[in-house]
Nucleic acid binder design. Sequence first.
DNA 1: TCCGTAGGTGAGTGTCACTATCCAAAGCAT
DNA 2: ATGCTTTGGATAGTGACACTCACCTACGGA
Lengths: 219, 219
Amino acid sequence: MRLADLSERSGVSPATIKYYLREGLLPPGRLINTTQAEYDESHLRRLRLVRAMIQIGRIPVATVREVLAHVDDDSLGLTIRLGAALWVLPHPGEPAPDAADDPDDPSLDVARKRVDDLLARLGWTTAREVGDLSPAHRALVSTLATLDRLGHPLDADDMLPYARSMEQAATYDLDRMETLPTPAEQTEYAVTAAVLFEPVLLNLRRLAQSEESARRYGL
Amino acid sequence: MRLADLSERSGVSPATIKYYLREGLLPPGRLINTTQAEYDESHLRRLRLVRAMIQIGRIPVATVREVLAHVDDDSLGLTIRLGAALWVLPHPGEPAPDAADDPDDPSLDVARKRVDDLLARLGWTTAREVGDLSPAHRALVSTLATLDRLGHPLDADDMLPYARSMEQAATYDLDRMETLPTPAEQTEYAVTAAVLFEPVLLNLRRLAQSEESARRYGL
DNA sequence: TCCGTAGGTGAGTGTCACTATCCAAAGCAT
DNA sequence: ATGCTTTGGATAGTGACACTCACCTACGGA
């Protein structure tokens, strides 16, 4: 498969593929000679993953490169490999990097305490120990602080049922992940799940909301 | 309260506040004379909402303007007003606007059918009737099609438990919304919920995932 | 042999959320 | 009164980012 074929089968323009190759998001093809390269199904697969991350997940190119480095890193154990890949993904709810939270903001302390309380009640001891180091934890705290400031605080009780649902979802995801044969595929699956299952959940939620609103208020 | 005070209390730079005024995201203050304007608590509140949408929700300025127009539009009934405000919000999972889905793509048809099946089983008749017109529906279909292409298809059975959870969440949200006194506040709450509860859910999910992964694989 | 095409590269494009600078009029402090 | 600051208003510039274009050289088929 040459670059033009890769472009045709993926729907991505040749110029963009060249750009991805340059940026290291796609491994170079096998060079037949100085001016021809051969690509295979693995390139197509990787290209589709890259597109999903960038187009659907709106993930910056530099971040995609980091994530893929972890996916491809056979030297790590599965737990670390998974963690590393998901750790560098953007976490919705994080403030923009150029406007980081003021760490002295008292509303953050309040939110942090509430998250700790929630984790304790859930029995998520590992998450509790890792605490603020995890981007997911920080993003959660930051979002709760913002909700407080807007006058719509969410306490641990409010979050508990949501957390239980997400626990179920996570169990389910890992079950599916385990059916895959290699750690590389498993890690890739986890990334896909993070990037693409999240939109599924959110859009289901919005559909549910308009359904319920129609039921209550007519129309 | 003058512009500088508004800036101080919100943590937003005066230059940015001027920009928001120019862009119509913030109503102008009451002009005391040609060079001084007076702002009040409602401006502070609106400014915080705008910041949350832009910084946390990463919503484009032009979209924020549209959403606020619906929040402020007293001429509409609650259902329409809610729907309109949420309709224009970005839907995660939508492809970037400059790379819209090819409508002839057969994988989209497959995904559409699966969503219809799911909605039928859930008994979400309104969502089913509105179908493809809803951005949430379109984004869901598009995301499922991408998952198919990546070799990790999600069928209606897989989604059913997630959808039930989201149904519960939606009911809960609307209950909270109904405690607010005016339609303007209710609409604002719905927007806040869409923009800020979603990060809460997603980060809970990621925490649950690493918790469960630690349980299964140690560390 | 020769023309079209392949892949590689550096520079350019468009978008977007600010941000910086200027200006003249109007306080406010002394 | 005087001089420093602040205001609203306007225009232009910035930096990040994901491409996208034009051009170059070297094949490779007719």
